[in-house]
C-alpha cells in the first residue's frame, strides 16, 4: 500500500449519462482516505453501481474526474488503476469463471505479470485471508454461495488493491455467512468502499457512510448520524430493518 497524503479515492464532479440518454450521475464528489471503511448507501436506481463502474474505468466519466492514489482514471492508466481498485461484483458467478478456485484467484495477478512461485504464494495468501485455502482445487460451482462470495473477495485481494470495492457484499447470504464475511472484512488491512442496502452491516463495519440519491451525494458523515437522521432516511427511501435501533447498540466502530 502506498502512503499518499491525499485521498486513496478522489472523485470530483463526476457526471455520466448512458448512451440511451439516461443520466445516472449529476456531479458526484467522494473522497475515501487510506484505511477507511466507507459505506455507499442509497435506494435502488440511485446510481451506485454506475459510480462503482467509474472507479476502475469500465465506464468513462462524462464530466469530472476520478483519481486513485493520485493517478487519474484514464485510458493510458487502466492497467495500474485496475490493480489499485479491486471490485467484487454482486454475483460471484460473474466473477468466478475458471475451472478451479486456484485458477480464478490467480487470474488477476497473472494478468499483472506475476508468475510461478510468487503467483502461487499470492493466491494462497489471498485464500488464507478469506479462510478458503483448503478449497483451492475445487471447482467454484461446487461451493456454497457464501463460499463463492468469499472466493470472489480473494480473487480481488490477490491483486493487492489499494481500495476494495464491494457491490452488495451481503446479498443472498445467510446470517452466518454474513457474519463470517464481516469478520473477514474487519480483519483486512485495506481501504474499503462498500455499496450496500444492508444498513446494520454498514453500521457494524463502516464508521463513515455516503448517501447517493438520484445521482448526487446527499449526505456524507458518521454512519450512526445518518442512520438516526429520520428525515434524511425517509427522504431518500432508506429504511432500517424492523426492530433495529442504532441507538441501542453500545459498541459501534470508531
Amino acid at each position: 500500500m502506498t502512503t499518499t497524503l491525499g485521498p486513496v479515492l478522489d472523485v470530483r464532479g463526476l457526471a455520466f449519462a448512458y448512451p440511451d440518454g439516461h443520466q445516472a450521475l449529476f456531479g458526484v464528489d467522494l473522497h475515501v482516505h487510506e484505511g477507511e471503511r466507507v459505506a455507499l448507501l442509497g435506494p435502488n436506481g440511485a446510481g451506485k453501481t454506475t459510480l462503482v463502474l467509474h472507479l476502475n474505468g469500465i465506464l468513462a466519466a462524462g464530466a469530472g474526474s476520478v483519481a486513485v492514489g493520485g493517478l487519474a482514471v484514464e485510458k493510458g492508466n487502466l492497467k495500474e488503476i485496475r490493480r489499485r481498485v479491486g471490485i467484487v461484483f454482486q454475483d460471484p458467478d460473474d466473477q468466478l469463471f475458471l475451472g478451479t478456485v486456484r485458477q480464478d484467484v490467480a487470474f488477476g495477478p497473472a494478468n499483472l505479470g506475476v508468475k510461478g512461485a510468487a503467483l502461487e504464494a499470492s493466491v494462497m495468501a489471498a485464500l488464507d485471508k478469506v479462510g478458503m485455502a483448503e478449497y483451492a482445487d475445487r471447482p467454484p460451482h461446487h461451493l456454497s454461495f457464501g463460499q463463492r462470495r468469499r472466493v470472489a473477495v480473494a480473487t480481488v485481494l490477490a491483486m493487492e488493491p489499494e481500495i476494495l470495492v464491494l457491490d452488495e457484499p451481503t446479498s443472498n447470504l445467510d446470517p452466518t455467512s454474513r457474519r463470517e464475511l464481516a469478520d473477514i472484512l474487519r480483519g483486512l488491512d485495506v481501504t474499503v468502499l462498500m455499496v450496500t442496502h444492508d444498513l446494520p452491516f454498514a453500521l457494524e463495519l463502516c464508521p463513515r457512510s455516503v448517501v447517493l440519491s438520484d445521482g448526487v451525494v446527499v449526505a456524507d458523515g458518521r454512519t450512526f448520524d445518518i442512520l438516526t437522521d429520520a428525515p434524511l432516511m425517509a427522504g431518500h427511501r432508506l429504511e432500517l430493518p424492523w426492530g433495529f435501533d442504532p441507538r441501542a447498540i453500545d459498541n459501534l466502530p470508531a
Partner: peptide
C-alpha cells in the same frame, strides 16, 4: 466486465 476489472487483456 469482471474479467476486465482484474486486468484481462
Amino acid at each position: 466486465l469482471a474479467m476486465l476489472s482484474r486486468g484481462y487483456d
